[in-house]
Simulated scan of single mutants.
Amino acid sequence: MKIIDKYILKRYLGTFFVMLIMFIPIGITIDVSEKVNKMIENKIPLLEILVYYGDFTIYFANLLFPVFLFLSIIWFTSKLANNTEIIAILSSGISFTRFLRPFIYGAVIISFFALMMGFFLVPKASKGFNDFRYKNLKGNSQTRETSDIFRQIKKEGLIEENIYVSNFNYLSQTGFNFTYERFNDNVLIEKVTANRIKYDQETKKYTLFNYNKRIVGQVDDQLSNLEKIVVKYNFEPDDLTPVVYVAETMTIGQLNAFINKERARGNANINTYLVVFHKKFSLPVAAFILTIIAVAVSSMKRRGGMGVNLAIGIVIAFIFIFFDKVFGTLAEKSSIPPFLAVWLPNVVFGILAYFLLRNAKR
């Protein structure tokens, strides 16, 4: 690696981390100002608050990673252009493609870092961040209650087990109008109903109230009725009320296994989890695309100076985020394949990067 490569790479990485250090305290300050009243009101321990803001830092940095990266490249490349350093470099016989090489080295480092963060560190931070907000800041209106839940809890050969709960409250671990059905080759062989079902966290068992059981026989059915009974089933409360952010809290291996399990169960929210899965890979790729766009936009010396380049950069960065959010939401709520929705912004901006780079070379 030549001196020019080390010089640009050092500026690339240094400006990026300085940008993080600058903006993260601003984000924390805004978050504290919004939540300080509830923190005092709920008497949250200081240690718990400090852990929350550690998770917040990782969550916030990952969320706005493309913006920080893009603006940092715009910033220091514009300074190089304004100081006529780029003109000097290109005048020495170095091609624009060769000038771009240390930026690609930097993108590789940042992308690898973002990939590992997304696979292992961000899920843990996301869980801590969201759990803290739900537990301490959301208020009593957020009861995490779901209704009309149908799940397939077992499928082995011809045997199939399904459950239905008309209403389940996660905080009280209580459900109503519970039904369990067991089939053999699509023929009902057992059915259980209960007016109320309550989960015991210690024993991992369910207490059923006003319990009715029917075992279907060839001639006669066997009926049993009890006021209360304790039963162990092959499902947990999280299966009945999966939180919206559950996929964000899993490592890549856990998420893949979770998606396969939910797909087998016929979960209607499977696209939500697939969007999170694909974003773990698309975000690092975006680092390369945004790097090329940023260099192409800011490598020319403009009459308005860095301000013009920064304005262009901010517009492009937020258009990228807008595309990313819109297509992610469409994948969750419509029939658009999650893979296509997540990668389409990268494809569109990749094409833009190609044309901007070709123009910059001229």
Rank of each mutant, 00 (worst) to 15 (best):
T241N: 15
I197D: 06
I94V: 14
L223I: 15
L158R: 12
L283V: 14
I21Q: 01
S282T: 10
M39W: 08
T179A: 03
I293A: 08
F17N: 00
G175W: 15
N140G: 14
F349H: 00
R362F: 14
R98A: 09
Q254V: 02
M1T: 04
N62T: 04
G128S: 06
S111W: 04
A257E: 10
A125D: 13
Y354E: 01
T97A: 12
Y180V: 00
P345G: 03
E34D: 13
F258W: 03
S111A: 13
G313R: 10
L63E: 12
Y7E: 10
F129Y: 15
I319L: 14
L13W: 15
L100S: 03
K127N: 01
Y245S: 09
R362M: 12
I312M: 13
A247D: 05
S335N: 13
S91F: 07
F119G: 01
G54H: 12
L171P: 01
F16M: 08
L357T: 02
G305M: 13
L137V: 11
T57Y: 11
N186W: 06
K2G: 08
S334N: 14
T291P: 09
D221C: 06
V246T: 03
Y354M: 13
L158T: 13
L274H: 02
L158G: 10
T77L: 02
T291W: 07
I40T: 12
K138W: 09
G54M: 12
V216A: 02
L115H: 04
I270Q: 05
I316Y: 04
V308S: 12
I28R: 05
L340N: 06
P102T: 03
T179Q: 04
N184W: 11
N167Q: 14
V32Y: 10
D185W: 02
I163G: 00
K138N: 09
N186H: 10
E227T: 06
M22K: 02
N169A: 07
K333M: 11
F120M: 03
A331R: 02
P25R: 06
I44A: 03
F339C: 00
S335E: 13
R133K: 14
Y180Q: 11
N140M: 14
F355N: 00
Q222L: 15
I21H: 00
T193W: 09
F119A: 10
K361V: 00
L13N: 00
K127C: 05
D5V: 06
G93Y: 07
K135L: 09
S334R: 07
N42Q: 14
L137T: 08
A81V: 08
K10E: 09
I229A: 02
N210W: 01
S335I: 10
L9A: 01
L9W: 07
